[in-house]
Design a protein around this nucleic acid. Structure first.
Lengths: 199, 199
DNA sequence: CGGCCTTTTGTGCAGGCAGTCAAAAAGTCG
DNA sequence: CGACTTTTTGACTGCCTGCACAAAAGGCCG
């Protein structure tokens, strides 16, 4: 409504993106407001004014993370054969570990990190996470349904069960990769799963 | 060496077990030393005297958790058909969620929780976690090798790749279950995986 | 130009945190 | 009984946290 007043001196979206990287790489608890203030080049009060408190800020970052991920997922699965695309979805976190030797580089899936750190104590975080899981399985199940119909994917299980299994796998893979991973072994496991889905 | 001095007034093992439950249900960061002091019915100084600082205490609890889990895993897989045992290994976390409506009840796999919360910043935690992963895959791969030889499990993939896939799945399942889970859907996914392993 | 509205800036604050320490207590051994 | 060793006890400390606030500053509109 009110459009007057001193203009914001920083780009809110860009600040959220940078905060996302910080939260992603360090987690919620290990990222202090001071860290954010330093990294975003703004003052404490500005941050609170623009984003509310730390928790809201984090949840907004998670939401941004998921929205971005969901868009990529949907795009990857919307055309062409499904299994190669799913293979990529799984192989990505398996390979990401190679870049992650530096501290400060994001690790794992931020939804998974949030699940582990915030969900037990934060109902709103649980909602965001649960919704993300539901969206993931829905998008993947839709793709698998098409692929079953076209004869690409086995009908030994329902698309929903297969999608749920893929959710578990991608979440587990992202998590395990944080502890260091033999990339070749991880890719072999991914291949084993993809092969098992083949009709 | 020196065996004299005032005797310890509490059972160290029992204190560690109780601490394990606290750390397991709340995580590292959300469990304060004060919480531990309250729950273990001992004084601050005694805790520090017996276990060192909070981090060492947590790592000791994680180690206890893993040792217990590994023993159960090895026992479950040492005799009889492998696939039903593996099914149970996976189905357990899927069902555990039903009991976990209460706050204070442990949730998820503590190795997974540690991976998410401590591993990025703690080399010693990473070692414990990585060792646990290696032990898991080794035990499971050994069982799968026997099962492949006996014709119970498909030889479409190596036992190592299958074991790695099972690690991902159980870790992902434990994690995802924290956000609430449709038990039936999770079990359907588990069945889909077990069926895919069948020869 | 001057009132208005909003953001910025930087300090200030209460609370909770992990960890410390000195004195008292409880055993053991000579 | 009294020296010695270890644990217990509970108060204490310094730090860092998230967050609030008052004053200044910047841009728009009449």
């Amino acid at each position: 409504m009110a459009r007057t007043g001193r203009p914001r001196a920083f780009d809110k979206d860009q600040a959220l993106e940078r905060a996302l990287l910080l939260f992603w790489s360090r987690g919620y608890g290990a990222t202090s407001v001071q860290d954010l203030v330093d990294a975003l080049t703004l003052e404490r009060g500005s941050l609170y004014g623009a984003f509310g408190d730390k928790r809201q800020f984090y949840l907004a970052a998670v939401q941004l993370y998921w929205d971005t991920y969901e868009r990529q997922l949907a795009t990857a699965l919307e055309a062409g054969p499904v299994l190669p695309a799913l293979r990529e979805v799984l192989a990505n976190p398996a390979r990401a570990q190679e870049y992650a030797s530096d501290v400060g580089v994001p690790q794992g899936c931020m939804i998974g990190n949030t699940t582990a750190e915030l969900v037990p104590q934060d109902a709103e975080a649980r909602e965001i996470v649960a919704r993300s899981h539901a969206r993931f399985t829905q998008i993947v199940a839709d793709a698998l349904r098409r692929a079953q119909a076209s004869g690409e994917v086995t009908q030994a299980a329902t698309p929903e069960a297969q999608a749920q299994l893929l959710l578990f796998t991608v979440q587990g893979l992202s998590l395990v990769s944080r502890a260091g991973l033999d990339t070749a072994a991880a890719l072999a496991a991914v291949d084993a799963l993809i092969d098992a889905l083949r009709a």
